[in-house]
């Protein structure tokens, strides 16, 4: 089973990802799936299998409703050559990354402090539960109404959707920080910045990485919705146009291209980061 697709699957219900129990499960799965040489083979095999199933289904359907993989790939190629696909992907990816950085930074700080301070946790826990349960769509619409149909509105809306999820995960992590190791840092009067870097953050890495991986999958879904509602470019906007023209081939082409991009980031950035941060466990 491809853990990438599996995570994307749980992301269908964005809010579910934020529940502590789910996070714990995600964390154990993540620990269990440290990359091995053979793992990649299975991943590729499962993707090929999926393409085969798709091809057969397309042949059986024999209609415009489900174009064959080859037709979709041709569309990807066509729009890549024309330059439109890379442009739209780039615009959407820029929004995804901006929202990601904002959400991760703010969520990490709030989550860390809530995990360390009982009072702050009591103060913010109610709003947090509330925030976790507001649908992404509502936050997005409200941001557009309050901030106008602007770039800032998109970033804010998407970040607001992701922040509570980050907070819950990082709070869990900051509660799990080992006080005995903090005592070592205190006894040797280790400067705050060094304590943060060498004592605290390494204990948060598993939670931060879990949060980042779930986050990327969640955020790009919300960005598409936000683009569809109130932007005139980006993958989400293009999808709304294809929707009006009933252009299923292009819809699938853009979706696949973006999903592939996210998977490349996952494999090229997230995994190496995780490997580096966790090498001491080997």
């Amino acid at each position: 089973m491809s853990s990438v697709r599996h995570r994307a699957g749980t992301g269908e219900l964005p809010r579910a990802g934020g529940r502590p129990e789910t996070q714990v499960v995600a964390l154990t799965r993540w620990r269990g799936s440290l990359p091995s040489g053979r793992g990649w083979l299975w991943r590729v095999a499962s993707l090929i299998g999926l393409a085969l199933v798709w091809e057969i289904a397309a042949q059986l359907a024999g209609s415009n409703m489900l174009p064959a993989p080859v037709a979709v790939l041709a569309a990807v190629y066509r729009d890549t050559r024309s330059g439109q696909l890379p442009l739209e992907l780039g615009i959407t990816m820029a929004r995804v990354l901006a929202a990601f950085v904002v959400a991760m930074s703010i969520g990490t700080v709030i989550g860390f402090m809530m995990g360390r301070s009982r009072k702050l946790n009591l103060l913010l826990d109610g709003p947090l539960v509330l925030a976790l349960n507001i649908p992404a769509l509502v936050i997005t619409i409200l941001c557009y109404l309050w901030l106008g149909l602007t770039e800032v509105a998109v970033i804010v809306a998407v970040a607001l959707n992701k922040i509570p999820v980050v907070v819950v995960t990082v709070r869990e992590g900051s509660r799990a920080i080992d006080a005995r190791l903090l005592a070592v840092a205190q006894v040797y009067r280790v400067p705050r910045t060094v304590t943060l870097r060498r004592v605290i953050l390494p204990q948060l890495y598993p939670y931060l990485i879990a949060s980042a991986r779930n986050g990327l999958a969640l955020i790009w879904k919300i960005v598409l919705v936000a683009e569809l509602l109130g932007r005139s470019n980006g993958v989400g906007f293009e999808l709304s146009v294809f929707f009006q023209y009933f252009d299923i081939t292009s819809i699938l082409a853009y979706t696949l291209a973006f999903a592939a991009l996210v998977m490349i980031i996952e494999a090229g950035v997230m995994r190496p980061l995780e490997k580096r941060a966790m090498r001491w466990r080997k």
Binding site: R180, L181, A183, A185, Y188, V190, V194, V199, P202, W280
Partner: peptide, 17 residues
């Protein structure tokens, strides 16, 4: 009480920070 994510040398140097 060593930091498991720091090498032996890094653990000792932590006290020198």
């Amino acid at each position: 009480r060593l930091m498991p994510w720091l090498t032996v040398g890094e653990n000792v140097r932590l006290a020198e920070a």
